[in-house]
Simulated assay, not measured.
Amino acid sequence: MVGKFVVDLDKPLVSQVGHLGEAYDEWVHQPIVSKEGPRFFANDILETLTRTRWWVIPLVWLPVVCWLVFVSMQRSLTPAEAATTLVSGIFTWSLLEYSLHRFLFHMKTQSYWGNTFHYLLHGCHHKHPMDALRLVFPPAATAILCVPIWTVVRLLSAPSVAPAFFGGLLLGYVMYDTTHYYLHHGQPSTGVPKNLKRYHLNHHFRVQEKGFGITSSLWDHVFGTYSSPKVVC
């Protein structure tokens, strides 16, 4: 029980979490470690749309990345220039990844619709961190978010550069989502993967207001949100 409203975990959650009001932030950051995810909606179609297997992400988006790089090369970029532009997009994504996680995914909400939106966006992941089917972003939702990002890239970049740079952003996203899935469900034993898993689990179970980097802790170091992990995994 949190505050005056009790969330019934045996009923669809999305229509309930908004009623938590000020107590939502405390409730959503008390994780339930179970591989079986909760039900979001009573409607079966809506419920199905919230579930995505991890391999769908590279299957859908990697061909798009290749096509975008091809378009840039058709518009006069050399292979070396296209590769450099792609890498620039990946690096820019790493900053976008950090910024979205820190300022959007961890925003504080209290209103009914604010709590509901946050739960659908990221709160559900903190409440049920091992829910494998709600760990990556559904492609339809990603496509919607791509529209304003592509618009900005197209306005700020040369016609030959914009597709490859956007392709780099998209490839960075694919790396982020698949890495994120692996950090929760993979079992790395040594090296960088093990350190990344420890760092991310530290964010979930120890210091949730720090450690926003997923694919690296670079921007956490730059902006002072690095948290030394102590979780043993």
Score class of each variant (00 low, 15 high):
D10V: 02
K11P: 04
K11T: 06
L13M: 04
L13S: 02
S15C: 00
Q16P: 07
L20H: 12
G21K: 10
H29E: 14
I32P: 06
G37K: 04
F40D: 03
D44T: 04
E47A: 00
T50K: 01
T50F: 02
R51H: 09
R51Y: 04
W54Q: 13
V56W: 12
I57A: 15
I57F: 15
L59D: 08
V60T: 14
V64C: 14
V64M: 15
L68G: 14
M73E: 13
R75S: 11
P79S: 03
A82F: 01
A82M: 00
T84Y: 11
L86F: 12
V87P: 01
S88M: 12
L95F: 15
E97L: 10
S99N: 03
F103S: 00
F105T: 08
M107F: 00
K108L: 05
Y112K: 03
W113R: 03
T116Y: 01
L120E: 02
L121E: 04
H126P: 04
K127L: 05
A132Q: 02
L135I: 07
L135F: 03
V136G: 06
F137H: 12
A141I: 09
T142C: 11
P148C: 01
I149A: 12
S157T: 06
A158W: 05
A158P: 00
P159C: 05
S160N: 06
S160I: 02
V161W: 02
A162H: 06
G168I: 07
G168C: 03
L169A: 08
L170G: 08
G172F: 08
V174N: 01
Y182N: 10
L183M: 13
T190I: 13
K197L: 11
R198P: 01
R198S: 10
Y199K: 13
H200Y: 15
L201F: 09
N202G: 09
N202T: 13
F205V: 15
E209K: 11
G211L: 05
W219T: 08
V222M: 09
Y226E: 05
S228P: 04
V232E: 13
C233Y: 06
